[in-house]
């Protein structure tokens, strides 16, 4: 899975550079987030700007990351959701669970 990871102030920016986040690659995202949590990096921004399609297992991986971050007194926030991807969060009511920002800068500002 094509991901980039970058420390940005008090948060880690994890950008997903894939067109799809689905049952084929979502476990890799989950594993990568777990690795960051194990390194004590509990404030994550997952940027989905490049992602055009998310399925239920992609949502499940993000929920897993959200729960892990919260249980370690951190937080997982999302940025850059495309219109159809955002509607998936609304359909599953996950827009009430995640803090969702229009871009990375807005998400970063929320951590400072």
């Amino acid at each position: 899975m094509n991901l980039s990871i970058e420390q940005r102030g008090s948060a880690v920016l994890l950008a997903v550079h894939e067109e799809r986040l689905d049952a084929h690659n979502s476990s890799e995202l989950k594993a990568q987030m777990l690795k960051l949590f194990e390194e004590g990096k509990n404030n994550l921004i997952v940027d989905l700007q490049a992602v055009r399609f998310v399925d239920s297992s992609g949502l499940g991986a993000l929920v897993s990351g959200f729960k892990n971050a919260s249980s370690r007194n951190g937080s997982l926030k999302l940025s850059g959701l495309q219109l159809q991807v955002k509607s998936m969060f609304e359909l599953t009511r996950l827009h009430r669970v995640f803090e969702i920002f229009s871009d990375v800068d807005e998400a970063l500002a929320s951590f400072s």
């Binding site: 297992s57 499940g60 729960k67 599953t92």
Partner: peptide, 12 residues
């Protein structure tokens, strides 16, 4: 539940 990690596919 919104925080379930599985079981959304058939619902969708």
């Amino acid at each position: 539940h919104p925080l379930d990690e599985h079981g959304r596919g058939i619902y969708l």
